[in-house]
Amino acid sequence: MYPLKKGKFAPQAHVGIPEGTFEEEHGRKGFYGKSAHLYHAHPPTGWIRFEGKLRPHLFDLNKLAPSDCRDAEGVPVAFLGNDDVTLYVSRRSQPMPFYFRNADGDELYFVHRGKGIIETDFGPLTFEPGDYIVLPRAVTYRVIPETQDNFFLIIQSRTEFDQPDKGLIGHHALYDPGVITTPEPKPNLDDNREWEVRIKVEDELSKVVYPFNPLDVVGWKGDLTVWKINMRDIRPIMSHRAHLPPSAHTTFLTEGAVVCSFLPRPLEQDAEALRVPFFHRNTDYDEFLFYHDGDFSVRTISSRDMRRCIRAAFITVRIRRRWRISIIRRRPTSMRSCWTD
């Protein structure tokens, strides 16, 4: 259908919003599909009452107490889930005394806090805050933290994590694939003890015991492996003249979800460009925000007090089939050096 224009409207989306109106994008397919822009006389979030399940949610994940926080035999805790993805928090503080293999799905570890090593079939990888670690389904691994106060957000997906098609902006955009780290083989061949592999399927554990260390891979080849990228190596694209939709910040795709990384960046400076907040009904997705660092607040920032930079790093998981959940963790001054630099 040719785009229709009715009443008071802006000729271009996100530019030259009519005086006294609030633009809201009503769109399909996560900012790729059909859309309409509604010009409201009031902010769409200007409610005075909200009843029922559709209300925005906020969770203080620091209060979760997964059993792996104090017990090396413990496990992460799940706090949200649907048919496509399940979100867990792990606070593992001690090396796992067993190996783990997830047959229920692929896993994406986001390291919010902590340093250490993760041993895998393909070899070990070190980890540090800001790391995304992709663990394909059924990879055998073991987390060996070096620090005590650790925090991992784990996204378990029914389908694998892929990189987005970067289209017209080219494959070096967002991050150069050269910053991806993959493990080198490092077999544990001199480990003369029994090892248990715990395999999770349908949320139940099966246990396999070997008289040797099962991470005995002396070499590997192929295009299916463990890999990682750190958030600091993601360089967001931006436009000073036009608001870019959240999909411009996509880092991973699955069949049922999108993971985006929002990093410190200048905001729009053109006099006519839409400022945040960007009101939208992303009707085919629900959104979960996890605040990693910084002082940006999606919902409280206004044109009156807006700063010219987003001084924060956070990720969103946009999950196909519609849920929008926000999680905020503020560290008011922690990104100041980033801004100053």
């Binding site: 979030t45 409610w47 909200f50 203080d60 979760l64 519609r322």
Partner: peptide, 30 residues
């Protein structure tokens, strides 16, 4: 649960750490 087609569920652990009145914090302060 926020959708009727493939709903996401707040699991019991999530319910325990949810701030139930969060929605009200979006309202303009008078």
């Amino acid at each position: 649960m926020l959708d009727g087609l493939n709903p996401i569920h707040v699991l019991p652990a999530g319910e325990q750490v949810e701030w139930q009145e969060y929605w009200a914090s979006w309202m303009d302060k008078k």
